[in-house]
């Protein structure tokens, strides 16, 4: 695992000094936040127990009693047919969708929906990349990446790149260069290609200095080449920085190539939980029968 270092670019002077070490990926603990109490470095990145979700009171649950644990640094793929609730499960893990039952722990801390501050803090430790990049279209690429810094600092200075502190702008540029898009910092987000937009979304997630990245079908709207590039970027970042990666995918090849473990949803339950080394394309396809 390497540490994040400021890039050396002509005309770009990082605020931390030449090749100075940038702040760590992992965010600083907030001693005032209850969520940090009881967390230990050995805690799994994600622990889900007895999770159940239904849409509508009387409907059948999308899935029920789902439990799994993802150790820190592991790369996990979630697969399953259409409508099996893969994206819902990933969103529930951050309480972007409220589950009906069950507990969620992120990095050893219970993700409780009742305290907005704690919820925001725990969410800030996870970079979430959506199927559609979800960039703000009218803003510049750099402003979009800077928004990731709201995980740690909030206020008007994080709203636009022109208002941001120098060290935040530098770090945003560094994150953009991690996805090889530093040269597009000034471009409007709605003037990017699909692949570029998705890589900017990855840079925004990196700006959070996350401990984990969740990705919901991040390559679904991309052509195969752009899709491979984005998945390579994810895998590289996860390997190089020790980030936990949980991604939802319909591409079984991606699950086998980029994940160490695969979770499969079928018929409203977690039907598969196995290391990818034991699985083949054929065995994974049986999940769709």
């Amino acid at each position: 695992m390497t540490t994040l270092h400021a890039p050396v670019r002509p005309g770009f002077e990082p605020a931390f000094g030449h090749r100075a070490r940038l702040p760590p990926v992992r965010p600083q603990a907030d001693p005032d936040t209850d969520a940090h109490r009881g967390a230990s470095p050995e805690s799994p990145a994600v622990r889900v127990e007895g999770l159940t979700k239904r849409f509508g009171r009387t409907s059948r649950p999308v899935w029920s009693d789902v439990s799994f644990s993802v150790p820190t640094g592991q790369r996990v793929a979630i697969i399953g047919g259409n409508g099996t609730g893969k994206s819902t499960l990933l969103r529930c893990c951050l309480r972007l969708i409220e589950p009906d039952a069950g507990d969620i722990h992120l990095h050893g801390q219970k993700l409780d929906g009742r305290c907005a501050r704690t919820l925001r803090h725990l969410r800030s430790e996870v970079g979430f990349v959506f199927q559609k990049h979800n960039l703000v279209p009218r803003l510049s690429v750099l402003s979009n990446v800077l928004h990731g810094s709201m995980a740690r600092t909030r206020g008007p200075r994080q709203w636009l790149q022109s208002l941001a502190r120098s060290e935040d702008r530098d770090y945003a540029m560094y994150c953009l260069e991690q996805v090889r898009l530093g040269h597009l910092a000034e471009r409007r987000a709605d003037h990017l290609s699909g692949g570029q937009s998705q890589r900017v979304a990855v840079a925004r997630a990196l700006m959070q200095r996350p401990r984990a990245i969740f990705a919901d079908e991040p390559v679904a709207s991309l052509d195969p080449q752009a899709g491979e590039e984005v998945m390579e970027t994810f895998a590289d970042l996860a390997r190089n920085h020790g980030l936990t990666l949980v991604f939802v995918s319909h591409h079984l090849e991606h699950a086998l190539t980029y994940a160490e473990r695969v979770l499969g949803l079928r018929d409203g339950r977690l039907d598969l939980d196995a290391p990818t080394g034991r699985e083949t394309l054929g065995s994974l396809r049986s999940l769709y029968d």
């Binding site: 925001r120 969410r123 979800n134 703000v136 928004h147 709201m150 925004r204």
Partner: peptide, 27 residues
């Protein structure tokens, strides 16, 4: 709803979500 949801996922506060995602899109 995508960009505001992304801002929520980051852990941004309600005012940040309005100013940084909703208002630029509604501009």
């Amino acid at each position: 709803r995508g960009p505001p949801e992304a801002m929520n996922a980051i852990g941004a506060g309600p005012l940040d979500v309005i100013v940084c995602a909703t208002l630029p899109m509604a501009l």
